[in-house]
């Protein structure tokens, strides 16, 4: 839902970042307002996942230039946990297994950290169990998964559902979902997509990172961005994704070559 007067949530300006000595992001610009759903598409290696990790504060990535403003504050100044507490959420492409740490406890500690930030009372074990059981419905997850270690031995689909469960508990303002559709069969994909749609509302924004159309068949984006070589090459509406599906990414190479020639850095607006 596009409302030009909706509050600004996330503003990325000319963002450059590298991992080790390898520059990956080379000037990303992106603005998210409340109520919007954005999709970032692109080939492997275009910098999509790096963008999500930089936003979440992964220590392996170094920002070399540019800024990220989250609700008026400098996001890049904050530790990863602080970003999460103020409402930024990253759904991992590969959720990490943490043997020994109970999923239920992990969810409770995380939820309470977010609640404390919002000035809400921490939930005790019983109150939290009630909450988590209710939110489980969003992803149609078996409560048995709460008793297991975080993501340990979960199938690909179970891991992704666990990610969306966390999102449902943390109630983020900006949710970045990195390849949430990868490795999911059709039923799991539908459940995850329904969960995401259910959680998207007028007060929050969602950034879907994907390279397939199939997720976008289930969640309709307001904007589609095409990323290549560390920048956003093109921005359009949902029809851009359909066009990509039809024509593939070959035109991107052509456009990149033109860009190199003119040193043009601003995204090309279409439609």
């Amino acid at each position: 839902m596009i409302r030009p007067d909706a509050p600004l949530l996330l503003e990325i300006r000319d963002l450059h970042a590298r991992v080790e000595d390898q520059p990956i992001l080379k000037g990303v610009n992106l603005t998210l307002r409340a109520g919007e759903i954005h999709a970032v598409m692109g080939r492997n290696g275009s910098g999509k996942s790096t963008l999500s990790k930089v936003l979440a504060g992964h220590p392996a990535y170094t920002v070399t230039a540019g800024s990220v403003t989250y609700r008026g504050a400098d996001l890049l100044e904050l530790d990863p946990e602080q970003r999460a507490r103020i409402g930024l959420f990253l759904g991992f492409q590969y959720p990490v297994e943490i043997p020994g740490v109970s999923n239920l406890e992990f969810l409770r500690v995380a939820t309470n950290a977010r609640r404390a930030e919002r000035g809400e009372e921490e939930l005790d074990t019983f109150a939290f169990e009630d909450l988590v059981r209710e939110r489980l419905k969003v992803v149609q997850m078996d409560p048995a998964f709460l008793e297991r270690s975080v993501n340990e031995g979960f199938s690909g689909g179970e891991k992704k559902r666990n990610e969306i469960l966390q999102m449902a508990l943390l109630e983020p303002l900006v949710a970045i979902l990195d390849e949430t559709d990868s490795g999911l069969d059709i039923d799991a994909l539908r459940i995850v997509a329904e969960g995401v749609s259910q959680l998207a509302g007028p007060d929050n924004a969602t950034l879907l990172i994907t390279h397939y159309q199939r997720l976008l068949d289930l969640i309709t984006p307001d904007y589609v961005h095409v990323m290549a070589a560390g920048r956003i090459l093109r921005t359009g509406g949902k029809e851009l994704a359909l066009e990509l599906e039809r024509t593939g990414y070959d035109w991107v190479d052509q456009e990149l070559a033109n860009l190199e020639a003119t040193s043009e850095r601003e995204p090309v607006e279409v439609a």
Binding site: G57, E81, L90, I98, G100, V101, V109, A113
Partner: peptide, 19 residues
């Protein structure tokens, strides 16, 4: 991963050690 869910560094380490 734990930090990105709002869990502080110390608590994250402590959780993993007790786990």
């Amino acid at each position: 991963y734990l930090q990105s869910r709002g869990i502080g560094f110390e608590e994250a380490v402590s959780m993993m050690v007790s786990g």
